[in-house]
């Protein structure tokens, strides 16, 4: 009962979706302000989702029905679980278990996988093209992300537990404050951008060339579930980075303000990156992520082993 509550309400589905909608609005509003526009009203993400829920679902002829309709749900279930895990540990580091970071990294891949499955099962050449791009992008961003995540692990004396890493930062200060931590943080932000499928890494659903790419055949509620997954990722991934590099969140006095500020800072950074860059080609993206970004992360790992 308790587990169900934390999965569905707090800090699971409802909480993550709610804050995710705020994050999504902030993202769009900042984008609009950067372009000197007014931007959408506060409840716009909610309206979008509500509208999609009441629309008709078009199922293309000849697609694999179960996979086509099931794929969005996989992604949603996975991202809800990740968010629940991260928040349980943030609220109470005792609930952490050995190796929880590996579980989190695994589960974070599932939303991407679900997009690929959905794209391929919809039997549309454009969607297949998008799905194959998404697959390459996943291969590309996983390497720098895991390298960057291994820096806090090395610093926290080799413990693969998010709870322990949080405890370590409590006593020794933020991991971001060290040289290796700062470098790993930069690599992690760029890999996160790719995981969130935002410009410059949105070639899987490039609106102008692929007409929505992997999602081209989706409409109505399944599309809403995909959008919701995206929105929840926009909250979950920055939160993971806050936990790994910036010492997690506090719930007393100014701590709350400071925690919100950390998250908002990361979010605005992501938005600014997205607004000041053009879309890369897939080969350029793979080269970029495996070259300079993975290089930075590798240097960070070496520095962390040297104890800097």
């Amino acid at each position: 009962m308790n587990a169900l509550f934390s999965y569905l309400v707090f800090p699971g589905f409802l909480f993550t979706a709610g804050i995710g909608c705020v994050a999504s609005w902030l993202d769009r509003k900042v984008t609009a302000r950067v372009q000197w526009r007014v931007g959408p009203p506060f409840f716009q993400p909610v309206f979008d989702l509500a509208k999609l829920m009441v629309k008709e679902t078009v199922i293309p002829r000849g697609c694999v029905r179960t996979l086509f309709l099931g794929a969005p749900l996989f992604g949603l279930a996975a991202v809800t679980l990740v968010s629940t895990l991260i928040w349980k540990i943030l609220l109470n580091p005792e609930t952490a278990f050995a190796g929880d970071l590996i579980v989190i990294l695994y589960l974070l891949m599932i939303p991407g996988l679900s997009v690929i499955i959905g794209g391929f099962s919809s039997r549309n050449p454009i969607a297949s093209l998008g799905a194959s791009r998404e697959m390459k992008l996943m291969l590309a961003d996983e390497l720098p992300f895991i390298l960057a995540v291994s820096v806090p692990i090395i610093q926290a004396k080799g413990s693969i537990s998010l709870g322990f890493i949080l405890g370590y930062q409590e006593t020794y200060g933020m991991i971001l404050g060290t040289w290796s931590g700062a470098l790993a943080f930069i690599a992690a932000i760029l890999a996160m951008q790719a995981k969130l499928a935002l410009v410059p890494f949105d070639m899987a659903e490039a609106e102008t060339e692929l007409m929505g790419g992997v999602m081209v055949e989706y409409s109505g509620p399944p599309l809403a579930v995909f959008k919701l997954t995206r929105i929840m990722m926009l909250f979950t991934l920055p939160m993971l980075l806050v936990a790994l590099f910036m010492g997690g969140v506090r719930f007393s006095g100014f701590g709350i303000l400071w925690s919100v500020l950390k998250f908002a800072l990361l979010l605005v950074l992501v938005t600014l990156i997205r607004n000041t860059n053009p879309r890369l080609r897939i080969d350029q993206a793979v080269r970029f992520l495996w070259g300079p970004v993975a290089g930075i992360a590798a240097v960070a790992v070496v520095l962390a082993i040297l104890g800097l």
């Binding site: 609009a32 931007g39 078009v58 609106e207 929505g212 081209v216 989706y218 599309l223």
Partner: peptide, 21 residues
């Protein structure tokens, strides 16, 4: 564009007719 900004009303351009209203 910034001068008229239809996104104020929640209007956006989408790439696929399946997404469109």
């Amino acid at each position: 564009t910034p001068r008229y900004d239809l996104e104020r009303f929640g209007i956006t351009l989408v790439g696929s007719p399946k997404h469109a209203d």
